[in-house]
Amino acid sequence: MTASAAPNAPSNMAAAAFPPNWPKRFAWAALTIYAVYAISVLDIDFERIVRGMDNARRLFARMFPPNLQADKLALIRDGMIESIQIAILATFVGVALSMPIGLAAARNLSPVGLAWAARGLIAILRSFHPVIVAILFVKAVGFGVLAGILALVVSTIGFVSKLFAEVVEEISAKQVEAVRATGAGFGHVLMFGVFPQVMARFVGLAVYQLDSNLRNSTMVGIVGGGGIGAPLFTAYQRFDYDVVLTILLIIIGIIMLMEVVSSRVRQIFQ
C-alpha cells in the first residue's frame, strides 16, 4: 500500500463523486420551456393584470362596510348552519365508508383482485370535482342538502380512502407479524396489529377532510346542493357586495375555528 490516499481514483474526481443526473436536468428544462411557451400562447399580458387590479380595488371598496341587517344575518345563519350540517354528515358517512374501502385497497393486506377493484373505484370517485358531482346529484335527487351531502360523500371517499390505503401500506410488517404469530385471526390482527399503527393518521385525514368539506359545502350550494352557497351566489349576482363580504367573513371565521378544533382533535388521538 502506498501512502497516496487514492491510488486508483478516477481522473475527474468531482464528476465521479457527484455524477450528473441527465434525466432530472432534462425534466426541469422541459418544464421551463413549456411554461414560457404556454405564457406566450395564452395571451397573458401585464396591462390586463394592472387593469384587473383596478377593478378589484373598486369591488373591494363597494364591499365595505359589511351588511349586518338582521334579516340578512338570519338568512346567512340558516345557510351557514345548513352548510355545516352538510359538511359534518358528508364527512361522517364518507369517512366511515373510506375505512373498509381504504383497507381493501391496501396491497399489503388485501388480495390482489380486491385491491385493484378498490383502487379502480377510488380512481373513478376522484375523477371529478365536487361541484361537477354535485350537479349530477342535483339532477338525480333534486335541489337541496341531500344532493350536497352525496356529492361530498363521493369526494370524501375518493380522498380519504386513497390516502388511508397509502397509510396502511406503510405500516410496520413486523408488528403485524408478531400479532399473527400469536395465533390471532385476521380481525384480531387488524384490531391489535394494524389499527393501532394507523388510527392517529386516519383521524388526521378525517379531520382534514372535515375542514375541506366545510369549504366545499359552501360551493355545492352554488349549483343547488344546499347551504350557504346559494345566498352567496345570489348576492354576487345582485351586486350586494356588502352581503358577500359578511358571508365571506363568517366563512373565514368558521374555517379558522375549525383549524383550532382539528389541531386539538389530532392531539387527543396522537
Binding site: 413486523k174 408488528q175 408478531a178 390471532a184 399503527q197 392517529a200
Partner: peptide, 20 residues
C-alpha cells in the same frame, strides 16, 4: 392459528405494537 397459539415467539426487534 391453533398451532400458532401454542408457540410463542420472541423477535430480534421485539416487534411490539408501538402505539399499544
Amino acid at each position: 392459528r391453533a398451532v400458532r397459539r401454542r408457540i410463542g415467539m420472541v423477535f430480534q426487534e421485539y416487534n411490539l405494537v408501538e402505539r399499544l
